[in-house]
Amino acid sequence: MLESGALVVDSVSHCFNHTPDNHKHPHAQRWDDETYELGAKLLPDSHVPSEEVFYRDHSPEELARLIFLESQIDYTVYHSLPLDDYFHDGYVSREKGFEFCEQNPTRTSMYVDINPLEDDAVEQVHHYASKDFVKGIKLYPSRYQNGQDLSLQLTEDAVWPILEAAADSDVDTVAMHKFIPFATAPVRYFRMADVEDAALSFPDLNFEIIHAGFSFLEETVFAMASHENVWANLENTACMVNTRPRKFAESLGEMLYWAGPDRILFASGATALHPQPPIEGIWNFEMPEDLRMNQDYPEVTQEDKEKILGGNALRILGKDPEDVRNQIEGDKWDQKRRELREDDAFPADPWSTYDTDA
């Protein structure tokens, strides 16, 4: 919860599995290492995890303690990942997401991974969409099969039926990774043209651009300006507020200039990244004066920050803030937070809860 009393919502959290036993693709170790190195660049030194903390199979209990005791996050959306051509469990397994949501039903929703190349992919969409806590599906623009990288952009023949199924189901959102390429996949698989085509064809679906503003900024903001169902999810991007503040200011400024503050979502990317520094950074952020004068970027108001850090996420999830507030008041995490506050120890020290019991 923010100083103003507004709720904080993390629109992407994960239980990663960074262990060698999980590696399936020859580049899996490289992927683990590059994820760690990226986090070390994006986080303040005080919040970079040790290798012992990072290179493990993270549990739902560890994720919950990280976000609910070491940060101000009140509610989160767990994203499982469909990367089973690289990692045996997909890198972030569905099963751990189901367990996480079952353990924390009033504080969590989930976007479930879908691999469009599986024969029953359409049936999976309808099956998972029937679960109350599932609010969206998660897609990736590339796969690796038979020694080749394959394009799975939204406009591909294999993916379009997934969008049709989503539009006919109880989920309202499709989240798509649009970021720096991983492994050997070409950059063109990650660009934005497919999002605009999908957003135009499925006006009743929301399309979340994951890592918006980190890559392909101009294409992203123009898509947001043209299509009211395109949203910017700031996973990774949010962390630049502290360590690359100029880049963050330019990314956020372009989004605000072209699309306004109502479709921008804070996300931490925990457990790969620590969630607290970007929350504090965004809450204390002020648009640099020269960017306001020279680029005509708007001032970022407290209302804007409350929307970005939680209000917008609750709206896309269909959650009433007061209902969420009432449901989490007095639960075990609220009680633990009260105990820490009594000792002037909330949020807890970074990664310290990994050594305690749930």
Rank of each mutant, 00 (worst) to 15 (best):
V9G: 00
V9S: 02
F16R: 01
F16D: 01
P20F: 04
P20R: 01
P20G: 01
H23E: 13
P26V: 06
R30W: 13
V48S: 06
V48M: 06
P49L: 03
S50A: 06
E51H: 00
V53E: 07
V53A: 14
F54P: 01
R56W: 01
H58R: 06
E61Q: 14
A64V: 06
L66E: 12
L66M: 14
L66P: 07
I67Y: 04
I67T: 08
L69A: 15
L69C: 13
E70A: 02
Q72G: 11
D74H: 03
V77N: 01
Y78Q: 04
L81Q: 08
D84E: 09
H88L: 02
C101T: 06
Q103P: 01
N104S: 02
T106E: 13
S130C: 09
F133M: 02
K135N: 00
I137K: 03
P141R: 05
R143V: 10
Q145D: 12
L150F: 02
L152H: 03
Q153A: 15
E156G: 06
W160H: 09
P161A: 13
A167L: 05
A167M: 07
S169V: 06
S169R: 08
S169T: 08
D170H: 10
T173C: 02
M176K: 06
K178I: 15
I180C: 09
F182C: 12
T184V: 07
R188I: 10
F190L: 09
A193K: 13
A193E: 14
V195K: 08
S201K: 13
F202Y: 15
N206Y: 04
N206W: 01
I209Q: 07
I209R: 06
F214E: 13
F214W: 12
E218A: 15
V221W: 05
A225T: 09
A225I: 05
E228A: 07
T237Q: 15
G253M: 09
W258F: 14
P261H: 02
A270C: 13
A270V: 14
H274D: 05
Q276M: 14
P278D: 10
I282W: 01
F285D: 08
D290R: 11
Q295Y: 12
Q295K: 13
V300G: 10
Q302D: 15
K307H: 11
I308E: 01
L309H: 07
N312R: 00
A313S: 12
L314C: 03
L314E: 08
I316G: 00
G318L: 00
P321W: 05
P321C: 03
P321K: 04
E322Q: 15
V324S: 07
R325Y: 02
E329Y: 10
D331V: 05
R338E: 15
L340I: 11
L340H: 10
R341L: 14
R341V: 13
E342G: 10
D343L: 12
D349M: 12
D355T: 14
T356P: 02
